[in-house]
Design a protein around this nucleic acid. Structure first.
Lengths: 204, 204
DNA sequence: AGTTTGAGTGCACATTCGTACACTCATAGG
DNA sequence: CCTATGAGTGTACGAATGTGCACTCAAACT
C-alpha cells in the first residue's frame, strides 16, 4: 500500500511541473501519465479527474502556506520595523522554497476549473480573516471596527499576493528581487502608518 | 474588404466568449472556428496562431481600459471623497460594460502564453507610471521621492486590480457588489490618508 | 504458503486537434 | 462588366486526447 502513495506523489509532482508553462485546464491526463511513467488509465487509480487532482494540489499548496504563516508568527515582535522586515524576508524565502506551489495558486486562482478557483478563494478569505484577528492584537487598532479590520487585512493580503506574483516573475537573488522585497516592505510600512492614523468612527 | 473585418471581429468575440470558462492555452482553433461559423483553416486568414489572437485581445482590452481612465480623469476634482467615490463608481461601471475583456485580462495575466503575459504586464506597468505622475500632482505629495510615488501607485493599482477581480466574481447590482465597492472606497481612503502622513525622507 | 486485492498494463475506440493542399466564388478595382 | 484577389471551403492526414475492458502480477492479509 506504500507503492500507491509513492505514485500519487509522483503524479502530484508531475502535474505541478507540467503546469509551469500551461494550466490545469490545458493539462492532459496523458501528459501527466507519461511524465510519471505510468499508462494513462492508471491515473484513475488515484484521481477521478484532472480537476480532483487540482483540488489536491490546492490543499497541499495551502499547507505549505500555513507553515509560512506560522514561521512569520514565530518571529513576531512588537517592534514594527523588524516585524515587517522579517515577514517580507520569510515570505520571499518561502516562495523560493515552494515556487511551483505558489505559481500554481497564482495561475489557477483565476484560470483554473471552477471548483479549484472556489477552493483557492476560500483559502485566501480564510487567511484574510486570520490576519484580521492578528491585526486586532497590535496596539493602536483598538478603536477599529471589525469591518475596517477586514478591509485593511484585505488590502494587506492583496499587496502580499501581488508581491508573491512579482517574486515569481524574477530570478532568485537578482536585483529585481531585492527591489520587489523593498517595495513590499515600504508598502507594509505605508499601510501600518496609515492604519495608525485611521479613525473608524470618522470613515462613514 | 469589409467582410474580412467582420469575420475578424467575430473571431475576437468568439474567443472572448469561449475563454469565459477556459483559457487561451486551452482554447483550440477549431472551437473558435466552429463558434464563428467558419471552417478551421479560414482562421489563418486572420491570425497566424491562437497566441497572436491573444495579443490582439490584450491590445483591445487595454483600449477600453484607457477609455475608463479618461473617464475617471474627466470627473477629477480636488475634493478627495468625491474623487474616490467617483473613481470607484466609474471602475465598477466600466467593468460591467466590458466584463469579458476584464475577465480575459485577469485570467491570461498569469495563465496565458508567455507573450500574452508579458504584454499584459507591460500595460499594467505603464498604467502604474501614469498613475504615479497623476499622484505627483495632488497636493501633499510634494516631498515624495519618485520611488515612493512608484511604490504607492503600485499599491493602489494592486488594490484596484483586486477590486476588478472581485466585481467579476459577483452578480451585477448585488449586495456583494456594493460591499466590494464600499471596500474599494475605504481602501483608497486609507491609502490616501496614510500617504498624506508619509514622509519620504524618513523611510530608509 | 496460499489467496485476495488492487496498482499498473495493453489494446482498442471514437473524438478532437493543427495544418497541408487544392478548390470556389464573392467582392473590390480596372 | 470583367477580371484578379483573397476570404472561406472541403477533404485528408497523422498525432493526441479521454476512457472502456480484460489482463497481470507485486504486495498485503489470513
Amino acid at each position: 500500500m506504500e507503492r500507491k502513495e509513492r505514485t500519487r506523489r509522483a503524479i502530484l509532482d508531475a502535474a505541478l511541473l507540467l503546469c509551469e508553462d500551461s494550466t490545469l485546464m490545458a493539462l492532459s491526463l496523458r501528459q501527466v501519465a507519461k511524465e510519471v511513467g505510468i499508462v494513462p488509465t492508471a491515473f484513475y487509480r488515484h484521481f477521478e479527474s484532472i480537476e480532483q487532482l487540482g483540488l489536491a494540489l490546492v490543499e497541499e499548496s495551502f499547507v505549505s502556506l500555513r507553515a509560512m504563516i506560522r514561521d512569520v508568527r514565530r518571529r513576531s515582535d512588537p517592534q514594527f520595523r523588524d516585524l515587517i522586515d522579517g515577514s517580507v524576508a520569510v515570505l520571499v524565502e518561502h516562495v523560493r522554497l515552494q515556487e511551483r506551489h505558489f505559481a500554481f495558486i497564482a495561475r489557477e486562482r483565476f484560470a483554473g476549473p471552477p471548483a479549484v478557483r472556489d477552493a483557492i478563494t476560500r483559502e485566501i478569505a480564510l487567511f484574510e480573516r486570520e490576519l484580521a484577528t492578528d491585526l486586532a492584537r497590535i496596539p493602536g487598532t483598538d478603536a477599529w471596527s471589525a469591518e475596517d479590520l477586514r478591509i485593511l487585512s484585505n488590502l494587506i493580503v492583496n499587496a502580499m499576493v501581488a508581491t508573491v506574483e512579482n517574486v515569481l516573475a524574477v530570478r532568485p537573488g537578482s536585483d529585481a528581487e531585492r527591489v520587489i522585497a523593498h517595495t513590499a516592505r515600504t508598502q507594509l510600512r505605508m499601510l501600518i502608518i496609515g492604519a495608525l492614523q485611521w479613525d473608524s468612527s470618522r470613515s462613514r
